[in-house]
Every structure is written in structure tokens, then in C-alpha cells.
Simulated assay, not measured.
Amino acid sequence: MILIAMGVSGSGKTTVGEQLAARLHCGFADADEFHSEANKKKMHEGHPLTDEDRWPWLRSIREAIEAKRAAGVDFVFACSALKVVYRDILRAGDKDVVFVYLHGTREVLATRLGARKGHFFDPSLLQSQLDTLEPPTEEEAIFVDIDQTPEQVVDEIVEKVTLRR
């Protein structure tokens, strides 16, 4: 199974994804690793990415998903996956790709972004991500509220994934 921790910046995708992968004894990759230097620079400068910026990034993540599936291993990715079309590219009809939507209030997200150090994402872009977000349906993703500790979030994900299987 491939799990994709999704949500806007500040939702805890990386922290939760790493802890989830450790709990499931599988690998982890952050989608930020797949961004071009130009994309990272653009975001650092406070400019939102366009779909044209995102297409190659999403295709490279899908290739990584396919490689993990071909190897027959479970894996966790952290990826914003803000739009339905982005999730469609990442899923590509693969029933073993499961999205976990990490959602929270704007206030919780802004507080987390304000406390984050050393990340290329400019916190002023939060609103552009919220504007871009097309929340998944409950059929499309497992929903988890981020207003709890990362450990509690991981516990809830493991419980919901187990029920879903």
C-alpha cells in the first residue's frame, strides 16, 4: 500500500509521514525532494507555483510510486496534492494508493508555519494554498484533524487504514 499524507503547508505532512512510515516499518519520501530548484526558489521568494510548475513534479512522484509498487513494498509519501487533478495523476487509477488528508483551521496552520525554521516555503503563501485546495471527499481520502499531537494523528491514521483494509 502507498499512503500519501496530503494537505496544505503546515499540516504536518512530513512529521506525520515520517512517524507513520516508522510505525509501519516502511520507507518515506517527502514530495519536496522532487521539486526542481527553480520551484523551491520561486516558493522561497513568496511566489505561488503554477500548474505548469507542478506537472513535472507530480509526474516524478508518480514514477516513484510506480517504482515502489513494482518492488512490492509499502511506502509513505508526503505531498500537498491540493487539487483533484493532482491526486488523479498521483493515483493513476491505482487502488493501492490511499490519501490521508491532514486538515486543520487556518489559525492552527498559520501558527505552525510561523514556528517552522529553515524551510523554503514562505508562510505568506498559506492563503494561496488554501485558495487552491480542493478538499478530497471522504470516499477519496482518510480524514484526520491535525489539532492533536503527531503521535495521536499517526494512531488515528493506523486505525483508519486498518479498518479500510
Rank of each mutant, 00 (worst) to 15 (best):
G114D: 07
K42M: 06
G46R: 00
E134K: 11
G27Q: 04
D51P: 09
A21N: 09
H119S: 02
D74R: 14
Q148E: 01
M43I: 01
S124W: 00
I2E: 08
Q148R: 15
L130H: 03
V108L: 14
E37S: 12
V154C: 06
T162V: 11
I157Q: 07
D155F: 02
E33R: 10
A5G: 01
V8H: 03
G10I: 08
V158A: 13
A5L: 14
D155G: 06
V144F: 11
A5I: 13
I2Y: 13
R91S: 05
V153D: 07
P136W: 07
G118I: 12
H47K: 12
G114T: 11
L126W: 09
E140Q: 15
H25D: 15
L113C: 05
E140R: 13
V161W: 14
A67N: 12
V100L: 04
M1Q: 10
F77Q: 00
L102C: 09
F99Q: 03
P56L: 05
K13A: 01
E63T: 15
E52W: 08
S124H: 10
H35W: 04
W55V: 14
Q148L: 05
Y86M: 08
E140M: 08
K95W: 11
D155S: 12
G72H: 04
L126H: 09
V8K: 02
R87H: 06
L20P: 04
G12D: 06
R54I: 07
S36F: 03
R23I: 02
F143P: 02
E139C: 11
C79R: 08
K117W: 04
Y86G: 04
I61Y: 06
A67I: 12
W57P: 07
A5W: 02
S60V: 00
A21M: 06
D96H: 15
V100K: 03
V158T: 12
L90W: 06
S9I: 00
R165L: 15
A110D: 10
K42V: 05
F28T: 01
R91H: 01
G10Q: 09
P136F: 06
D53Q: 03
P123G: 06
R106W: 08
R69S: 13
V161M: 10
L49Q: 03
L102I: 05
T14N: 12
A92H: 15
T15R: 04
V100D: 01
V98D: 10
A29W: 06
D122T: 02
A22K: 15
T137Q: 09
K117F: 09
D147N: 15
V73E: 12
G93T: 02
Q152D: 13
A38C: 02
V154Q: 00
K40T: 02
R116P: 00
A110E: 14
D74T: 14
A70G: 03
G72A: 04
L90F: 05
R106I: 01
F34T: 08
A38I: 02
D122M: 00
G27T: 01
